[in-house]
Design a protein around this nucleic acid. Structure first.
Ligand SMILES: [Mn+2]
Ligand SMILES: [Mn+2]
Ligand SMILES: [Zn+2]
Ligand SMILES: [Zn+2]
Lengths: 135, 135
DNA sequence: AAGTTATTGATAACGAATCTCATTACCAGC
DNA sequence: GCTGGTAATGAGATTCGTTATCAATAACTT
């Protein structure tokens, strides 16, 4: 049976406290910096559990690192993510869902799923100059 | 100046010979199995170069492995990929491009880009029973 | 042909993620 | 409240994809 530990609560609260996608490692060091003694393996386990339970969304960064964000929405959705700070907005994509199904069917593929993420530089990062210029 | 080596050609030809997404490691062992003496690091470098030059497309597998496929199209496109065998079809997504731009603009994000991949089980995998049942 | 230098490849190094396992502590049952 | 069973923890080891190192090689220029 699943037990309630302060470690899992700490991870959940840390996730709930931000609208950004964060890695297990950065979340761990954030918690440590605040005085927590939580272990890195525990953070990995808690995030994986939260993702399974639907309390967290996850995606892979360009460098292949898994990033997590609190999920505030029950139904299927996607994200608009700031490349600079990780801030993310949950977005609907009704027309994209339909498109994905149609494309799969047209090519004889069954059991379709899809990965759809939109990236950009958020308003705050664009105005404060913290975003690296793209060229 | 860029030099022409049989190693780079071997990687390019191996990629051109299939319509599947493959990893650097599997491509390396395929070449080795055919008698080539090419090194693993060279395969990694060749694939990275091909991706930069636009001759290969790349994506990350669920397990964070980088996969590559020959790119046969000049303009921007996406892929429909078989979860079982890696076979992929290049697809247009005009309406998705427009949607991505609109979503970014509506939320004050600039310099938008996007990751859009559709997965499924291809017709051959679905009929020959090689695809693992999903539950 | 000779010289320059980009490329190669065996190996070491790196890093994210997972595994091991002895220890801890949650909690159901009394 | 105790207590026993056992899920959870965490330090460290391990795995595995990828990149860095660097001496040797080979592609191109002249
Ligand atoms: Mn969707
Ligand atoms: Mn597109
Ligand atoms: Zn931002
Ligand atoms: Zn297939």
């Amino acid at each position: 049976m699943k037990r309630n530990t302060w470690q899992r609560n700490a991870v959940r609260e840390a996730l709930d406290g931000t609208d950004r996608f964060v890695s297990a490692q950065s979340l761990h060091s954030t918690l440590r910096a605040k005085g927590s003694s939580i272990g890195l393996a525990t953070v990995y386990r808690a995030l994986a559990d939260l993702a399974i339970e639907g309390e967290a969304d996850s995606l892979q960064s360009d460098q292949g690192e898994s990033l997590y964000r609190a999920c505030t929405r029950g139904q299927h959705h996607h994200h608009l993510i700031c490349r600079n700070c990780g801030r993310a907005v949950e977005i609907e994509a009704t027309e994209v869902e339909a498109w994905a199904h149609r494309v799969a069917a047209e090519n004889g593929f069954v059991a379709p799923s899809h990965v759809v993420d939109v990236f950009g530089v958020c308003g705050e990062c664009a105005s404060d100059g913290s975003a690296p210029s793209l060229e």
